[in-house]
């Protein structure tokens, strides 16, 4: 397990601000956030690579705050793998053994098992410079696991891989985690990684954690406007909620039972429905709108629709767009189901 208690790190032009985070034993935890949010900095703080200015770091019940990296029992795999270029595959994998009773049978057996498990037997004498991206990741993983760390840190390990390798390595992470029961903290900005691997996630923004929870919680019920936007709710709009009605600018939506201090409404683009309304007449619960922009993204088309001064973003199949004859400037009947509106 990993516990970060009020972790603060200060770098020129950036700081981590009193981060609290708890990752349970055997959990696969993903740290998500935009570039420059401080994800890797948290990872390197746990590994002891960067100096912290305040806070405590507990790894597997041990306070490792003041310990050097080599005493923390933490393995790390970077996006670029950071394989030692002057050593071949076998020497890379065996690198840490001498510091962990590697000469004993247990260490050697563990290495052999990892080499077999990760399909590296035929690569042992190869220079690491000649490996493919997927092979490099497997070697980096074997090297990190060879020392039997209590915690494994993964820094965007899939980001630089070709899509065909990415799925293989994702499967590998999943099965290795299941087999070893290791606590894993992975940094990523890819939602697919979080969906397919993580039990819980935390969203990081500008050096602080915005929200922590299960993948479903964070993606369906974001707690801040930033998280809503980050997880793809492209319509994050300021609102007023009063006596069961929701006002988005001049638009009013009935939301029975709602009467609170919510400041934003977050709506996924796929939850905004359009019907062609060339005459400008809309159905009872719809809003009259006009398409202001269409951007084609292959199978899908992204549309901006303006209704009573409010701009909504929506997506639809490019084929549906053609069938409905919708073009820029077309009048539409815009529908929002109140059940799809998430209030923040």
């Amino acid at each position: 397990m990993i516990h970060l208690h009020r972790l603060s790190v200060r770098l020129p032009g950036f700081s981590l601000k009193s981060v609290d985070l708890s990752i349970e034993q055997g959990e696969f935890f993903c740290l998500l956030g935009p570039t420059g949010a401080g994800k890797t900095l948290i990872l390197e703080s746990v590994a002891g690579i960067v100096s912290i200015v305040d806070g405590r770091i507990i790894v597997s019940g041990r306070d490792v705050t003041g310990l050097p990296p080599e005493w923390r029992g933490v393995g790390i795999v970077y996006q670029d793998c950071a394989l030692f270029p002057h050593l071949n595959v076998e020497k890379n994998i065996h690198y840490g053994l001498r510091y962990h009773n590697g000469s004993n049978r247990e260490g050697r057996t563990r290495c052999r098992d990892l080499i077999d498990r990760l399909g590296l037997a035929s690569l042992l004498n190869r220079s690491v410079m000649t490996l493919s991206g997927g092979e490099k990741q497997r070697v980096a993983l074997a090297r990190a696991l060879a020392t039997a760390p209590t915690v494994l840190l993964l820094d965007e390990p899939l980001a630089s891989l070709d899509p065909c390798f990415r799925e293989d390595i994702r499967d590998l992470f999943r099965s290795l985690h299941r087999e070893t029961g290791l606590t894993v903290l992975m940094v990523t900005h890819d939602f697919t990684d979080a969906h397919s691997l993580a039990q819980r996630v935390a969203i990081l923004n500008d050096g602080h954690i915005e929200q922590t929870g299960t993948v479903d919680e964070v993606f369906r019920r974001p707690s801040t406007a930033f998280v809503a936007d980050f997880v793809g709710m492209k319509n994050v709009l300021p609102v007023r909620v009063k006596n069961g009605t929701l006002s988005i600018g001049a638009l009013v939506l009935a939301m029975p039972g709602e009467n609170g201090t919510h400041r934003f409404a977050a709506i996924r683009p796929e939850h905004i429905y359009l019907h062609h309304a060339p005459s400008g007449v809309v159905s009872g619960d719809g809003f009259a709108g006009r398409i202001t922009a269409i951007s084609n993204q292959g199978l899908l088309a992204e549309l901006a629709v303006e209704a009573s001064g409010v701009t909504f973003k929506t997506v639809m199949l490019a084929s549906s767009l053609m069938e409905m004859g919708l073009r820029q400037g077309a009048a539409v009947d815009l529908h929002i189901d109140p059940a799809d509106v998430h209030l923040i």
């Binding site: 002891g48 690579i49 990296p69 393995g75 950071a82 840490g96 020392t147």
Partner: peptide, 13 residues
Amino acid sequence: RLEHVSRSLGASA
């Protein structure tokens, strides 16, 4: 990062 990984694998500075 090569040095960081080495440290995480147990090597001293």
